[in-house]
Amino acid sequence: MARIVVTVMLKPEILDPQGTAVRGALTRLGLTGVADVRQGKRFVIDLEGSLDADREALLTKLAGELLANPVIEDYSLQVEA
């Protein structure tokens, strides 16, 4: 069993209206000093068997094609046990 976590975030230079809205709400609800909020997506993928190089390469490729929009988003893969 292998678990891969893919994190997708808007690139830093891209406007994040949802993050901005959350920042406004946090401040309104009393949290002081909120400098910035960025909102993203997290995919948890459980694979049967172990993660070999081929599957990892394919998953990395698919992360950029399916899970993230590389024009406006960055993504990273993290393999967990």
């Binding site: 808007l10 891209i14 209206p17």
Partner: peptide, 15 residues
């Protein structure tokens, strides 16, 4: 500075 790429404009209709 950070790497500058041609950045896509993102709209915010609520704004």
């Amino acid at each position: 500075g950070p790497a500058k790429r041609p950045a896509v404009q993102v709209g915010d209709p609520f704004m």
